[in-house]
Write a protein that binds this DNA or RNA. Structure first.
Lengths: 363, 363
DNA sequence: TTGTATGCGTTATCAG
DNA sequence: CTGATAACGCATACAA
C-alpha cells in the first residue's frame, strides 16, 4: 500500500474478469453482455476504481471530445453569460470546453484558435462577437471541415451558421416602452458603425417610434463608434455639453449606457426624472447601478445552449448555413420613467418632426 | 478537388518522403535528422498541410494536454480576472484550458470535476474560491495523484497548494488611507463568517487602525454572512436605518460594497462627503459606478498565471505543500474623501474608544 | 454472446 | 543518423 500503482486499463479489468478486452469494451458501451459477465464486470470495475481513458477513447473514436470557444476578451460580461449557457449544455454531454481569448495583452492574436483548427483539436468552434478580422479564421475552419458557429457577429458572415438576437424587435420594444411612458423626443447613440447589431437596434427603434407617430430626428442620432464603457463616457460629455432637447436616450448597448450614466450622474443629471436611459443586452451589472438600467435583453444563456446543440448535433445538410434569431425581452428597471413636467418646462422642448409616414396612433 | 480527403498522418508524410515514421517523429520533436531529410520533410509537411494529432500525441506521451479550472460560477467578475491570467500563462504553453462551473442552475454539482479527476482527463486542477464543500474534491484529486492548487479558498485547506492575497496587508492599507484622510470612526462589514479572507481583512483593518491609535469599535463590526451583492443591499438597509455614527465603512469585498452603495445612493446618502466607502478585490466594475469605488485590489491575473506555473512546473517535493501570498494594492477612486465638516456637525460623533495598546500617532 | 485481430496517430526503444 | 517495432488504451468489424 502507498505504492504508486498505475491506473488500471481495460486490459486489467478484462484479465481480472477472465474475459476479452472487447467484452469489457462492449460492457462499457452498453452492448450485448450476458447478465453474469455484466455483474462480474461491474463489481471488478468498482473494486479497481477503473475508468476509461478519455484520450484513448477519443483517439479510437476519431473525435476530440471538446469544443472551442473563441472571444475577444473573456472578461466581457456579455460573454460570461453566453459561456454559462454553453457550459450548461455541455454538462449534459460527454464533451468539454476549451476557451481562448483572442485579445490577450491588448493585442489580437488568434494563433491558438488556428492551432485548434489545424490540429483538429476541437469537434466544433463557437466564435462570439466575430468581427471582420475573424474572417480568415472562419475560412480556415470551413476548409478544415471544423464545424463552426458565429454568435452575435458584428457583421454578416458568409458560409457559417449564425446566431443572433432580434435586435430590430428589441429596438421596437424600447420604442413602445418609451412612448407609453410619454416620451416624444428621443435620442439614440450607436456603437461601431460596422456593427450590424447597432444598425438593427436603431432601425427597430426608429420604426417602432414611427409606428407610434413619432420621428427619430436625424440630429438626435449619434454614434459612439464603439461598444465600450469609455466611449459612453466620452459621448456623454459631448452630449451633455448642450442643453437637453430630448427626454430619453437609448444607447446601443449596456456598456455604453453604463459609461453614459456615470458621466451624467457626476454632472448631476437626474435620472430618470430629467432623462430616461435605456441600453441593450440585459447585463446583470445593470441592476447594480442606481438607477438600475432599463434594457432590452438578449437571451444569452439560451444562445449559448443552442450554439452547442447546433454545433454538436450537426443539423441539416453540410453545405447549408442556418441563421437563427432569438427574441429579445425588455427588462424595465429604474432608469426610465415618465418625462417630468418640471424639467420639461425649464428646457426648450424640441418640436417633434411631422408624423410623416407613421400610421395613426394606436392609442 | 472538393473531395473530402482525409487528414494526413505522420505515416503519410513518411511515405511521401521515403523515410520511416520514426524519423518524421524525430524531426517533429527537433531531434537528430540530417539536413537533407530535414529540408525534404519541411517541404512535404508544408505541402500536405500536415499537423500532429493532438489526441494521439497526448495518448503516446501519457499526458492530457489540458488543465481544469473549477469555480462556483464562472459569472463571478473576480473569477473572470483570474481566468484571464490563467489564459495568459497557458497561451505560452502547449496546454489548453477546460472550464467547469460547479453551480449551474442554482444547484451545486461537481460531477464533471470528479470525472476529470477519475478519468485523469486533466494534467492539473485549479480550484478557485473553494469552500468546505470542495473538500472531498481535493481528497479525490490528491488520491488520484492529480496536481491541484487552490486559489483564494474560503477556508484553510490541508495538503494542497494554496494561493491567496495578503488580506491582512490589504486591510492595513485601507486603514492607513482612511486615517490619512482624517477618518476616526470607521465601520467594517464582513462576509461569510467562515471566510478566512474576510477575517484577515478585518484583522488587517483593525491592526492598521490600532497602529494609528484608533480603535475599531466592536459595535462597528458587522457581518453580512455573504459576499454577494444582495447581502450588501440588505446590510445597507439595516445599517442606514440608524443615524450614522461613522464617517467611513469598509465592506469585506467589492460585491458587498456595490450592493451597499446602491442602497445608500437611493437613500440619498452623499458619498463620499457623508460616508466614505471601501471594498476589497479591485473589480474593474467598481470604476463604472459613481462614485467609483475605492478598493484594496488582489492581483488576480498574476495569481492566475502563477497558479498555472505551480501546477505545470511541478515545483518542489511531491508531498510538500506550498502557500503563496500575493500583495494587495490600494486603488483610490472616488468613494473615499476627507470626512466632511458639514456632515460631521449635524450627526452625533461617536467618541472614539481610548487608544489602548496603540502606539503614538506617527503623524 | 464472446473472442480475435486490427486500427487510431504518436512517441520511445533499440538495433542497425 | 535511421528504421523497425512495441507501447499508449480503447473501439469495432468479423469470426467463432
Amino acid at each position: 500500500m502507498g505504492g504508486v500503482r498505475k491506473k488500471p486499463t481495460i486490459a486489467t479489468v478484462a484479465a481480472r474478469a477472465g474475459v476479452a478486452v472487447s467484452t469489457v469494451s462492449r460492457y462499457l458501451n452498453g452492448r450485448y453482455v450476458s447478465r453474469a459477465v455484466r455483474a462480474r464486470l461491474s463489481e471488478i470495475i468498482e473494486e479497481l476504481g477503473y475508468s476509461r481513458s478519455w484520450t484513448a477513447r477519443n483517439l479510437s473514436l476519431g473525435r476530440r471530445g471538446s469544443i472551442g470557444v473563441a472571444i475577444d476578451s473573456s472578461e466581457d460580461p456579455w460573454f460570461v453569460q453566453l459561456l454559462k449557457g454553453i457550459e450548461e449544455d455541455l454538462s449534459t454531454r460527454d464533451t468539454s470546453l476549451m476557451l481562448c481569448s483572442t485579445v490577450v495583452r491588448k493585442t489580437y492574436d488568434p494563433k491558438i484558435v488556428y492551432q485548434w483548427i489545424q490540429d483538429h483539436r476541437v469537434d466544433g468552434l463557437i466564435v462570439a462577437r466575430a468581427q471582420r478580422r475573424e474572417r480568415p479564421l472562419f475560412r480556415a475552419a470551413l476548409k478544415a471541415q471544423v464545424p463552426v458557429i458565429a454568435v452575435a457577429p458584428f457583421e454578416i458572415i458568409a458560409g457559417v451558421n449564425v446566431l443572433r438576437s432580434n435586435n430590430v424587435g428589441g429596438g421596437a420594444m424600447i420604442a413602445d416602452h418609451l412612448v407609453n411612458l410619454g416620451h416624444r423626443s428621443i435620442a439614440f447613440a450607436g456603437g461601431p458603425s460596422h456593427s450590424i447589431d447597432s444598425k438593427h437596434r436603431l432601425r427597430g427603434l426608429r420604426e417602432g417610434l414611427a409606428r407610434r407617430g413619432i420621428t427619430l430626428a436625424p440630429k438626435h442620432i449619434f454614434s459612439c463608434e464603439s461598444f465600450e464603457f469609455d466611449a459612453g463616457t466620452v459621448f456623454a460629455e459631448q452630449f451633455l455639453s448642450r442643453p437637453l432637447d430630448v427626454t430619453a436616450i437609448v444607447l446601443a448597448n449596456d456598456a455604453l449606457a453604463f459609461g453614459f450614466m456615470r458621466f451624467a450622474l457626476r454632472r448631476g443629471i437626474k435620472m430618470p426624472e430629467e432623462l430616461s436611459i435605456v441600453g441593450f443586452d440585459g447585463l446583470v451589472e445593470g441592476a447594480f447601478l442606481y438607477p438600475a438600467l432599463t434594457t432590452a435583453a438578449q437571451p444569452m444563456q439560451e444562445m449559448g445552449r443552442v450554439a452547442c446543440q447546433r454545433l454538436l448535433e450537426s443539423h441539416g445538410v453540410p453545405g447549408h448555413v442556418e441563421r437563427i434569431e432569438f427574441p429579445m425581452h425588455l427588462i424595465v428597471r429604474e432608469s426610465t420613467a415618465r418625462p417630468s413636467a418640471e424639467f420639461a418646462k425649464v428646457r426648450p422642448l424640441t418640436l417633434v418632426g411631422s408624423p410623416t409616414a407613421g400610421p395613426m396612433d394606436d392609442a
